[in-house]
Structures are given as structure tokens and as C-alpha cells.
């Protein structure tokens, strides 16, 4: 552990074991966020606003101040925080239920408002903590504990693509979707985390990254199969890409 601390520095609290299930994608994203904070040297002025759900635990593993918001409201909390203390770096860490079901209005208005805060949406396409219910991101036909015969789009609507919506918002300056199904995609995801935070540090505007991650427990799959399923099924519908990067042109202003 001491040895690993050499890599991760002060942000990640290695003496606290992740409480995520084995193979959970949250662990990867939590680590990527901590790494970026450490790399930028912004730990002392960074505040995490976490949502409700498994993502709510993410701050426990980092030596940064944190606010556990009400379900879905993290972006609004971040806006209020940033307005009162603009010199600090504020990011939200929310699941797809928190971010795109109950909290979609706050997320979209925060994106549109353009106040420099960062939102990370960890999309495991179901409600993990409450036991694998359908979320807005659940795929068509996917079986969950509340869609025993698979998601019927005529009844429940279609899997919701969030960054596509936000890319159209002028207040958003960096919008991306990433995945974590293999080392290559994780490296890309790490790059997007850094860019999203950098976008805020430069005061350019809102930044957003969605991460497609597996929830082996909720999917009732082995860890290995859940990652394969992510790579094959999820990514087909939720294509990882950088939707918007207006960081360069803003640098000139």
C-alpha cells in the first residue's frame, strides 16, 4: 500500500478500501478523478458534490472536502457553491439515476448556465444501490428488477443519451462520453477527466463527462462478462466520443 501511494500521492486515501462491489466501474472512475486532482495540484481547493447512490461513496476515498447532495441536485449545489467561492474547483459525481432521472433539469440548466463547474456522470445503466432497477439509461429489452421482461420502450421510453443533449448547450465547453472496458478506453477516459477539470480551472464554462461503466452485481453477470457486455452492447448505443471541445478557441480570448 505504501508502495502504491508513491503513484497516487495525497489525494487518494489508500488506507480506506473501496466499498464498491468487485469489478465495479466506479472504482476506476473514482481513481481517475483522484489522479487528475493530484496531477493538477488542486486538492486543497477542490470540493466534490456527490449524488445519491453508489457514487455517493466516492468522496470517502479522497482527502478533499465533500458535500453529499440531495438526490439529483448536485449540479445546483455546485452552482451555488461556485458562485459564492469561485476560486475553488467544484465537481459533481453522480450516477445515471441521479444525473439523468431525478436530476436532469438541474444538470441541463447547469450546462446551459455555463458557470464553470464540472459534472461527472457514471452511467452503469441501472440503479445500483437500490438493487438494479431500470434507469433512464437501461437498454431496450434489458432485464432489471423492475423490468423483468426487459425494458419495453413503448412503456418506459428510450435509453437516454445525456451528453448529446448537452453538446447543444452554449454554456458547455467540454462534453464527452468515455468508457472503461479496457486499458485503452480507460486512458482516454483519464484524458477527458483532466480536460474537464482543466476547462473549469481556466474558467471557460461547464464541462461534462459521462462514463459508461459496468455494474456486475446489478447486471447479474460475472465481472468479466459485465465488461464484455459493456464493450459490446452499451458502447454500441452509447458511443464514446468527445462531443465538444471548445477549450482551445477559448484560450485565445
Amino acid at each position: 500500500m505504501q508502495e502504491l501511494a508513491k503513484i497516487y500521492g495525497e489525494t487518494l486515501l489508500l488506507d480506506k478500501k473501496f466499498s464498491y462491489c468487485p469489478g465495479c466501474g466506479h472504482g476506476i472512475v473514482t481513481r481517475l478523478v483522484a489522479e487528475a486532482i493530484e496531477a493538477f495540484g488542486i486538492r486543497k481547493r477542490t470540493v466534490s458534490v456527490v449524488g445519491i447512490g453508489c457514487g455517493g461513496f466516492s468522496h470517502h476515498y479522497m482527502e478533499i472536502d465533500a458535500i453529499e447532495a440531495m438526490h439529483g441536485r448536485a449540479p445546483a449545489v455546485a452552482v451555488g457553491y461556485k458562485i459564492a467561492k469561485p476560486e475553488n474547483i467544484v465537481y459533481t459525481y453522480q450516477g445515471d439515476g441521479d444525473c439523468s432521472a431525478i436530476g436532469l433539469a438541474e444538470l441541463l440548466h447547469t450546462a446551459n448556465r455555463g458557470i464553470p463547474v464540472t459534472c461527472f456522470m457514471i452511467n452503469n445503466n441501472l440503479f445500483g444501490m437500490t438493487g438494479g432497477q431500470m434507469s433512464p439509461a437501461t437498454l431496450e429489452g434489458q432485464v432489471t428488477s423492475t423490468t423483468p421482461k426487459g425494458r419495453d420502450v413503448h412503456q418506459h421510453g428510450y435509453p437516454l443519451r445525456v451528453p448529446e443533449m448537452m453538446a447543444d448547450m452554449r454554456g458547455a465547453k467540454y462534453v464527452a462520453r468515455e468508457a472503461v472496458y479496457d486499458a485503452k478506453s480507460i486512458r482516454k477516459a483519464a484524458s477527458s477527466v483532466r480536460k474537464a477539470l482543466d476547462c473549469q480551472m481556466k474558467g471557460l464554462g461547464f464541462s461534462f463527462v459521462e462514463f459508461i461503466v459496468p455494474c456486475p452485481t446489478g447486471l447479474r453477470l460475472s465481472v468479466s462478462d459485465s465488461y464484455k457486455w459493456n464493450k459490446e452492447k452499451m458502447v454500441e448505443y452509447f458511443k464514446p466520443q468527445v462531443f465538444k471541445n471548445e477549450m482551445e478557441q477559448n484560450d485565445e480570448n
Binding site: K6, I7, H26, G27, I28
Partner: peptide, 17 residues
């Protein structure tokens, strides 16, 4: 170091000194 990158629990890696 690929093992470090994919590990969801920060349990493995290659350390430089």
C-alpha cells in the same frame, strides 16, 4: 502497468523508484 490501469480497487501496479 496495464494491471494498474484496469484495476477498480487500486490494488495492483508498477511502482517506480
Amino acid at each position: 502497468g496495464l494491471c494498474r490501469i484496469v484495476c477498480p480497487d487500486v490494488a495492483i501496479g508498477v511502482v517506480e523508484s
